[in-house]
């Protein structure tokens, strides 16, 4: 359903153009969870933003193709892109602190996509939003619906973000480091939730993280990126058990092991 072919992203906002992603290729089947790992600045978020159609059209040049169900996101019109965004492609960002509008009630923000893409009545929107809040396992949805973001914890906010990204039943969810800002127990709960939603709804997830452990836990396939290039790609078990490149080996060696620490 998603095919990225030879994507190159080049910044033009300085005197010397700078390429941040080289020849990025990605194929995703419906209902697949694909992970992208890599250190900071390896181009993983840039690739994800490009897939979401969120990179500005000024100051940078994008070459290649991003085919979503056969439609090229890079060459389609703004109107077509907007139709896809939200209803077909949803995205959750890293910082739950900053990804909700501090001055809007949570309910209104969850309903935002419905307001834009459907013509449901106010009550129907509210009902859908309440259902969705319950689906992401938030308790006391009535109260959360009415509260402002600062009244919620980080984990709750990230669940709200998931709810608002999923409310229009997108077929592709892009999760950009969604567990990074959370502590380990909340992280595990969010991952379980993500997996559960994946099984229930059959959505495809593009999961970006620098945390190999998290990727191993949730993804079926993984791409390893370094300095804007994909250096390794394969099934999670293969990559983790039998890494082909030195970079992947180093990455894997960097995971702290409890046994080592005990000695």
């Amino acid at each position: 359903m998603l095919d990225v072919i030879d994507l190159n992203i080049e910044f033009h906002d300085h005197l010397i153009p700078e390429t941040v992603v080289y020849d990025f290729d990605l194929h995703m089947d419906p209902g697949e969870i694909v992970g992208i790992v890599g250190e900071s600045g390896s181009g993983k978020s840039m690739s994800a933003l490009a897939v979401a159609g969120l990179l500005s059209r000024k100051d940078m040049q994008k070459r290649g193709k991003i085919l979503y169900q056969g439609q090229d996101l890079l060459s389609c019109s703004r109107r077509e892109l907007r139709k896809l965004q939200g209803s077909e492609i949803g995205m959750v960002f890293q910082e739950p602190m900053h990804s909700l509008n501090p001055l809007m009630r949570v309910g209104a923000q969850v309903e935002e996509a419905l307001l834009i893409h459907t013509d449901l009545s106010k009550e129907e929107r509210r009902k859908r939003a309440m259902d969705m809040l319950a689906r992401v396992e938030l308790k006391d949805t009535e109260r959360i619906y009415r509260s402002y973001p600062h009244e919620l914890s980080g984990g709750q906010r990230q669940r709200v973000m998931l709810a608002s990204a999923l409310i229009c039943d997108p077929k592709l969810l892009i999760a950009d480091e969604i567990t990074t800002a959370l502590d380990v127990t909340v992280q595990a709960a969010i991952l379980d939730l993500l997996k559960q939603l994946h099984e229930e709804r059959g959505i495809s997830i593009l999961f970006i993280s620098h945390d190999l452990y998290v990727v191993k836990r949730i993804c079926s396939r993984v791409l390893v990126m370094q300095k804007g290039r994909v250096v390794e790609e394969g099934r999670v078990e293969e990559v983790f058990e039998d890494p082909k490149t030195d970079y992947t080996k180093e990455l894997l060696a960097s995971i702290p092991k409890i046994r080592k620490l005990r000695q």
């Binding site: 979401a52 159609g53 969120l54 907007r82 139709k83 896809l84 965004q85 939200g86 209803s87 492609i89 949803g90 995205m91 959750v92 960002f93 890293q94 910082e95 900053h98 990804s99 909700l100 509008n101 501090p102 923000q109 935002e112 996509a113 834009i116 893409h117 973000m161 608002s164 990204a165 229009c168």
Partner: peptide, 17 residues
């Protein structure tokens, strides 16, 4: 370029909104 603006943009909100 704040995240919350990005995320409503991704929901397909228009510039005026």
């Amino acid at each position: 370029n704040m995240d919350y603006v990005q995320s409503v943009r991704l929901m397909g909100a228009g510039a005026l909104r």
